[in-house]
């Protein structure tokens, strides 16, 4: 709880500020959209949190989003696959990607930054080649399949809880149980803090590292799938660009330390919500201009991280 205090306060502050300054912010439509975006980006954040807690980093998330976001409609619309087999394929490929990253990092001892940076280039390049740089989408077809990304559980006539959010919450609950209630979660935190000590305590650290990359790539794939189902338009050259950075930023906002061994799922989800809320705020508040987006997001991120550090030092001093 104390670990997410700072980000929770930030969320409330930004929420109240936007409610006061923005137009129609509290309307059911907008609230639903905020949940939807938190769901979509939150999946990526939860995925990268696993890797970060384990002491690694994954820069290939945006490209995996692109690979799946373009690959699934490409398989369905151009290759005539059924949606089910296309999704199965996407999950299989992302599992392979995570496995591959993990093996290179543990067995060949390559640096995670390098491995996943190469991944970032390779998967985007492969997608562009596969889709021949063509925009991908489902046109007007496969409405039932797409409902997974577009529909919501209606609450009022204006407000519903979007499926992507429901899916993300489900993933978050499983992730929370994994990290806090299973021995594997404890192992992941242990190895993120001190891989050598964890290994010397009899933990199969390699297996845990590989698992964290698999989880990250598969959640990126699930995110990519929902992004394309939701938006229905993906261009191989730019779909998912920088999404790894949004995911990492949300994870850091939510209390993950890039040194490893620290982080909470709830924090990451709140961190994602703050990022999406800020973007929403910039569009809804009249005197905030859209070209200020990166400036505002960057400043808020930095202030939140600074406040967090100051709080931590105060607590440490009091000991």
């Amino acid at each position: 709880m104390k670990k997410i205090k700072g980000i929770l306060i930030t969320l409330i502050l930004v929420y109240v500020a936007t409610a006061l300054l923005g137009e129609n912010f509290l309307g059911g439509y907008n609230q639903g959209k905020l949940l939807e975006r938190t769901g979509l980006y939150g999946l990526l954040g939860i995925g990268v949190a696993f890797v970060i807690i384990g002491g690694g980093i994954d820069l290939s998330i945006g490209s995996v989003v692109c690979l799946v976001g373009c690959g699934v409609p490409w398989l369905v619309m151009r290759q005539g696959w059924s949606p089910t087999s296309a999704v199965a394929m996407a999950m299989l490929v992302s599992l392979g990607i995570g496995l591959w990253h993990g093996l290179l990092i543990t067995k060949l001892r390559l640096q995670p930054f390098v491995v996943t940076l190469c991944g970032l280039l390779i998967y985007r390049g492969a997608t562009r080649g596969m889709a021949e740089d063509q925009s991908q989408g489902f046109g007007g077809e496969h409405e039932g399949f797409r409902a997974l990304g577009t529909e919501a559980i209606a609450v009022t006539d204006k407000f519903g809880i979007p499926f992507p959010f429901v899916i993300m919450v489900g993933v978050a609950v499983v992730a929370w149980i994994f990290l806090n209630k299973t021995i594997w979660g404890r192992y992941l935190f242990a190895l993120g803090n001190n891989e050598e000590a964890a290994r010397l305590s009899g933990i199969d650290t390699d297996r845990m590292v590989i698992l964290s990359y698999v989880v990250c790539s598969m959640l990126a794939a699930l995110g990519g799938l929902l992004f394309i189902l939701n938006g229905n338009s993906a261009q191989p050259s730019d779909f998912g660009n920088f999404y790894e950075l949004y995911a990492i930023a949300a994870a850091v906002l939510g209390g993950c330390s890039l040194r490893g061994g620290e982080g909470t799922v709830v924090g990451v989800v709140i961190g994602t919500a703050v990022m999406q809320l800020l973007k929403n705020m910039i569009n809804l508040v009249d005197w905030l201009k859209s070209h200020m987006e990166f400036l505002i997001v960057g400043v808020v991120l930095l202030v939140a991280v600074m406040a967090d550090e100051v709080l931590k030092r105060r607590v440490a001093k009091r000991r």
Binding site: R186, F189, A190, N193, N194, E196, A197, A198, L200, S201, I203, G261, E262
Partner: peptide
């Protein structure tokens, strides 16, 4: 190599 300094006494003892 012996300890995980950031973890608690309990977490270290039971690891």
């Amino acid at each position: 190599q012996g300890l995980i300094l950031e973890m608690t006494v309990k977490e270290n003892m039971s690891l």
